[in-house]
Structure formats: structure tokens, C-alpha cells
Design a protein around this nucleic acid. Structure first.
Lengths: 144, 144
DNA sequence: CTTTCATGTTTGTATATGCAAATGATTAAT
DNA sequence: ATTAATCATTTGCATATACAAACATGAAAG
């Protein structure tokens, strides 16, 4: 293998961002009917499982910066998919009925996404890779 | 494991983007002395190994969109790290001497980056994960 | 109680990135 | 040789995302 290829294959920063770009493309295509970028759907999912969640906690679960979460929630609020309730310095986030409906559709799109990448990468391989990435994120976050 | 956790652990789109965000943070911190975002350094590296490369080929190697590559190259040109030579419909990209110098420093930062994430994730694990991500990207790109 | 401190959220600003449309240049077809 | 088709690059526009500074609220200390 050439030196160039070795560097491209070996650097986890590079392989990770590249792979994320590729997966994002696939996810966007799969979710396009929902008219929301994939991350929003994950946000909705988290709120679904944690009604009344605070933004801080949302950030932690999604690994996004607080500013990002503010903007995401604002957009979803504008579309009436979530509501914000201000409780002192915190704000609590809950799904609206439309939000619940979007979540249901999202669940189905998710299965389509799983099927698509499993067909390309293999089911075993995908599950395994996903698990590793999850663990690795947890470790990186603990160290910063 | 809760249903929520299972969804967060199992979805390769989500685990991949999350991990990429985390790695980007680490890489940016490691490379901050170079005053260029990590991807630019990879671009420089590729030009280093392929003097006179066309943008098309750059895009392929980096898995970025042509528009992104135009902007990246423009920025690097403005900083006099690369030169563009127009040859008909193609443009050929080459490192300047400053570009070469930046590359040398980058090589060293790269080792630091490797050391940092290896310390957190394990050396074996990191190499392995990187290899898998690389393979997976190749497969995804072939299918689109 | 009021001042200081800590914590959560929002806003300002900047950048990476993509898609689609426009431009420019080479090649093929009549 | 002019027109049509093809291909590479660029530009316009939109969005995700981050950091740092500002803001707002609640808690602690005097």
C-alpha cells in the first residue's frame, strides 16, 4: 500500500468524517419524505423517550453543542412538532401530537435505512461497526 | 438496554456522525497550531502525493463535493499554500514551498493525533476501526 | 438582603459542506 | 465549421455545526 493510502486508511479522524459524510447522504435520501434533516429526527426520537427533557440533557445524548440544540429546537417549535416550557433557567421540551406522528413515520424510515446500509455493508458488519462507534464516542466524551 | 439506547447504539448514521463530531473536536484541538481546519491539511497531503492533481480527483479521494473543493482550494491559494494552473476545462493543483512546509508540520501533528486517540481508544481498536470505516466508505461510494 | 458565583439558554459570528444552476471548455455529430 | 452533447469548475444559496460572548435565573456567602 502506498504511503498516501496508508495515511488515508489509518487516520481515524479522516476515515470517520468521510464515512459520516457518506452515511449522511444515504440517510438524507432515505428520510427526504419527512422533510427534516436526519439529526432532527433523532432529536424528536429522544424527546419521545424523554418527555419534558431539558436542553442540556438533549445535548449530552446527541453530542451536540448547546447552541446547535437551541436552533434545532427553535426550528421544530416553529413547525409545531415540539413545545418549549420555560421553568426558570431550564427549558423543558415535549412532543406535540404532530411530533408524535412524525416520530411514527420516522420509525419506519429508520428500518428502511437499516435495510439499505445492511444490504451494502452486511448486517453483521453494520451492527458491529455501529456498536464500536458508540463505545468509542462514549470514551472520547469521557476524556473531554 | 432500553429501546431508546438501542436505537441510539444501533443506527449507523447516528453513531457515525456523532463519532465524527467527537473526532473532529480532537483533531481541531491537535492541529490548532497549523491554523487550518483538519480537512485542509488532508487536502494538502493529497496534493503532496499527487502534484498537479485535478480537482475532480481530489474530490474523489476526499469524498467531498466539487463545490467544497473549489472553496477549499481557493482558500489555500489565497494563503499561497497551493497554486492552480488552468489547463482547458481542468485545473491542476500543486503545492508551493510554504505548502510543503505546512505538510511537514502536519505530519508531526498527525502523529500526535494518533497518539491521543490511541491512548483513549486503544491502538489496536483504533487501527481496526479506521480500517473498517475506510472499507465501508468505499462500498457506500461504489453503490452511489 | 444583596452581591457573587454557577449553571442553562440564547445570540452573534464563522466555517464546512452540499445541491442545483451557471459558466467555460473540449469532443462528437451533422 | 457550426451545433449539440459532455465534462470540470465555479457561484448562489441553504443548512449543520461550533465557539465565545451575552443573558437570565437560581444558589451560596457575606
Amino acid at each position: 500500500m502506498s504511503e498516501e493510502n496508508q495515511l488515508l486508511t489509518r487516520c481515524l479522524y479522516f476515515t470517520a468524517s468521510r464515512f459520516a459524510r457518506n452515511m449522511t447522504r444515504l440517510a438524507e435520501k432515505t428520510f427526504e419524505a419527512d422533510d427534516l434533516a436526519p439529526t432532527y429526527l433523532y432529536l424528536i426520537m429522544i424527546v419521545k423517550f424523554n418527555p419534558g427533557i431539558r436542553q442540556k440533557e438533549l445535548c449530552r445524548k446527541l453530542s451536540i453543542a448547546p447552541s446547535t440544540s437551541t436552533r434545532f429546537v427553535s426550528k421544530l417549535e416553529k413547525r409545531k412538532l415540539v413545545t418549549r416550557t420555560s421553568g426558570g433557567k431550564d427549558t423543558y421540551i415535549t412532543l406535540t401530537d404532530s411530533g408524535e406522528a412524525v416520530y411514527s413515520r420516522f420509525q419506519q424510515s429508520l428500518e428502511v435505512l437499516f435495510a439499505r446500509y445492511s444490504a451494502i455493508l452486511g448486517s453483521e458488519f453494520s451492527t458491529n461497526l455501529s456498536k464500536r462507534l458508540y463505545e468509542a464516542s462514549v470514551k472520547l466524551e469521557q476524556n473531554y
